[in-house]
Design a protein around this nucleic acid. Structure first.
Lengths: 222, 222
DNA sequence: GCTATCAACTCCTCAGACAAGCTGACAACC
DNA sequence: GGTTGTCAGCTTGTCTGAGGAGTTGATAGC
């Protein structure tokens, strides 16, 4: 799948390159559209589209009458992309950090509703582990883990978990393909132990069990 | 600071709204530029800029000759924005998760170079705590904490930390403004204790000390 | 059934015109 | 001196018309 970049995209890349090279630093006003168009040898509307693209990425900001200004030195890291490119062990260690702390906080903050969610998702996971196709099982497993993080009642942790999910899901799919005997489906007990520790309001125990479970997952991959 | 949105931005918002409302789902081809321009009552180049902006945000993709397609149902979560809007306690708990696990991993993986960085950044921090202005002190403090996470040699954790930094920095500035006696500058010992545990290759101790230090920071804010 | 052709559609790029907004300089005024 | 008003010259914002280039699906021919 080849893909030729339109001029506007190339122009955006060039602008980004110049910003990255230090030619224009934070807060700098770029040359006018007509000047830039002449410099890059393209039309003014092409420059405008390039600027608009970088504005969408929160790198540039244009103010009518004043000019175009640099508001970030590089494109905001696209986390989806970062995670796709990262080693899966690095990703799993990030997940371990989030879920361990999530379990610890959940143990102090969980509500009755959280406990109900644990029961439902654990039951689902048990059924799926027994006889469902891989993708069902994966969703059921992730649903329980998400419930744990949600019970921490911390928006940042929940959002972090959700950011990691797509990458984790892909890794699980790959892993299960190589695992004909469904060995990983047998750790239902470990999941119930985490839920139990949270129910019992034991932060240390919940954190330890979460870390050990995820550490085992990490080892089985790396 | 009032700020009127240009037509192109308004058009981009409208397109995003329609995508979010389910009018156009994943993979859908949008109507042509001329049609959209007529629908929204703007010129063609305005529509083009709106599309280009959403392309920069990875929501749309335009293919010459084929059309414009939806490639994501919503703008990728802009973490900078998420963190700006989140409670500072939630952010600090996220940081605590990252740094605790970072310290734990650093204790097993730190190199001689990491230890050198610890020494430099700790010395800087000590000097800054003694007599430097607030912003110097904050940078020195953050530099040490970043060194700890970097020593974990995990790209995802490092990137996560860097994502959190701007928000943390702002919170520290606000905190120090209310703290005439510079109470927070006196915990140099806690920082050196973390570094010492990592030097001694004691993961549990490093994690515990990191968690306790950051827990104290969190309590002093919340 | 398969391939080649082609017309209609799409986005891409440019140029030119005018509107709208900002900035700094300068004059007028208190 | 200090403040305010005005304005020229810059900037970006928007529209239009024209032609180029790529894609797609229908159709004719084999």
């Amino acid at each position: 799948m080849i893909r030729r970049h339109p001029l506007a995209e190339q122009a955006a890349e060039e602008l980004l390159r110049r910003i990255g090279s230090g030619e224009w630093t934070l807060g700098t006003k770029l040359p006018g559209e007509t000047t830039l168009a002449a410099q890059l040898g393209v039309g003014r509307s092409t420059i405008r589209e390039a600027v608009r693209e970088l504005a969408g990425r929160r790198v540039l900001e244009s103010r009518q009458g004043a000019g175009v200004f640099v508001i970030a030195l590089q494109a905001a890291e696209d986390w989806d992309k970062v995670l796709r490119k990262a080693d899966i062990t690095d990703v799993l260690e990030g997940r371990l950090a989030i879920e361990t702390e999530g379990a610890r906080l959940a143990a102090s903050r969980r509500t009755q509703a959280d406990l109900r969610t644990f029961r439902y998702t654990l039951a689902d996971r048990k059924r799926a582990a027994a006889n469902a196709p891989d993708d069902w099982y994966i969703e059921a497993d992730l649903a329980f883990h998400r419930a744990v993080v949600t019970a921490a009642h911390n928006a940042v942790l929940t959002e972090l978990f959700d950011t990691f999910v797509p990458r984790i899901r892909r890794a699980m799919i790959d892993m299960l393909k190589l695992d004909d005997e469904h060995r990983h489906r047998h750790d239902q007990a470990a999941h119930e132990a985490i839920a139990e520790a949270i129910r019992a309001k034991d932060p240390e125990l919940a954190a330890t069990r979460a870390r050990e479970h995820l550490g085992a997952v990490r080892s089985s991959v790396g």
